[in-house]
Design a protein around this nucleic acid. Structure first.
Lengths: 219, 219
DNA sequence: GAGTACATTTCGACG
DNA sequence: CGTCGAAGTGTACTC
């Protein structure tokens, strides 16, 4: 990895055209040839970049980074403040514990969160347009389809609506009720759901996890 | 901006939990206190990070970065290879020329792409839930609403459907047909559009731009 | 500040 | 390898 701090201007010509006026920035060149241009603020997203695989050609004042698709990142350098190279080796990679998959598993295990007498049919219940997160039956034996999101927004309600349309065509299932479950449900999504007769359920991740732990403690 | 190359392990506890085993990485501390952890490969996305606003507390061997929501990034440092600080100043920012806005402008200018006799009413035609990209009239004088995307996916069809519902309530416009236009239309989106009587139009960006150029060449 | 749409999205999973 | 959906998405824009 090479770190360069330089006064430079940058042009990108590819899927769009973008220009960065002259200023001091960090140029980060990774081992695979990819280049990131960072300023001293903003988010983790660089101002400009070129993803690998790509090739860097360097002259006195100009770096030209090109990829196979012909996209170009041209960095014009006026002054170099810092330039150092470092051998990092290969990174062992990240261990993640995701949220939505975890929520789905927890809710399936604790389907009584919806009320006493609910029974799980299965997770990832297939439909022609993709699996619905959970299918279960209420105390009266009627089918209930659950869509789970971390954040409940309008798209999720649309998605559940499509699943319900399809599931309700199956005479073995119909009528199928919908439940929109999320850690947080945006007001607009809630309104749309209510308008369509879909129930909303706010999930308490910690509580679900806590119940899980409590069960563990029985051993 | 501070650049540190160090052998370290990293833990993030917040919206999810993640762990990075011991390895040599770049730690980038920006002026606003945000921290990025980069390896020597991958894309522009850091392995781990903390977005501003956040606070960094540093001891001998441990950096703890915390934000207002209580999310924590803990970096345990075993050895420091490089440590330097640089004053970059404020970045003047990026000048962009996007694609979707350009597509909209080109199609509005060349509304005959839909067929002879089409007339533009206006771009960004207002509705209560937001402006529809283009409203025009067909050779018979009937209203046509166009939704433009770079990539046509299912969400765009839903969006256009909502616009059409609303526009068709206006007796001065109804009946309004829908056209879903994109550089590329996904099969699922096309199926949904057809099911709803919405026409699909694949846009050729280069051709639209080319026609534009041809006009320029007349001068 | 919330809501929405776009992104040079990136990333992972699945067929 | 494409398709599809999620992201600790970020970001700009509107209301």
């Amino acid at each position: 990895m090479r770190l360069v701090v330089a006064r430079c201007s940058v042009d990108y010509i590819g899927r769009l055209t973008a220009h960065l006026p002259l200023a001091t920035r960090l140029l980060l060149v990774k081992a695979d040839g990819s280049v990131l241009v960072h300023s001293d603020g903003g988010s983790y997203k660089p101002l400009n970049w070129m993803s690998p695989p790509c090739a860097l050609v360097e002259t006195d004042t100009t770096w030209t980074v090109t990829n196979k698709a012909g996209e170009q990142l041209v960095i014009t350098i006026e002054a170099v403040e810092h330039d150092s190279a470092h051998d990092l080796g290969v990174d062992p990679g990240l261990v993640k514990d995701g949220v939505e998959a975890h929520l789905q598993r927890l809710l399936a295990e604790q389907i009584q969160t919806l009320g006493d007498g609910y029974r799980l049919v299965r997770r990832e219940y297939p439909t022609p347009i993709g699996p619905v997160d959970i299918l279960c039956r209420d105390p009266e034996g009627l089918a209930v389809a659950i869509e789970i999101k971390r954040r409940g927004e309008i798209d999720g309600v649309e998605q559940l609506t499509r699943y319900l349309d399809l599931l309700n065509r199956d005479p073995l299932l119909a009528p199928v009720r919908g439940v929109f479950a999320a850690q947080e449900i945006k007001p607009q999504a809630r309104t749309l759901a209510q308008d369509r007769g879909i129930a909303c359920l706010v999930l308490d991740y910690d509580a679900l996890r806590g119940l899980d732990n409590k069960e563990d403690r029985l051993f």
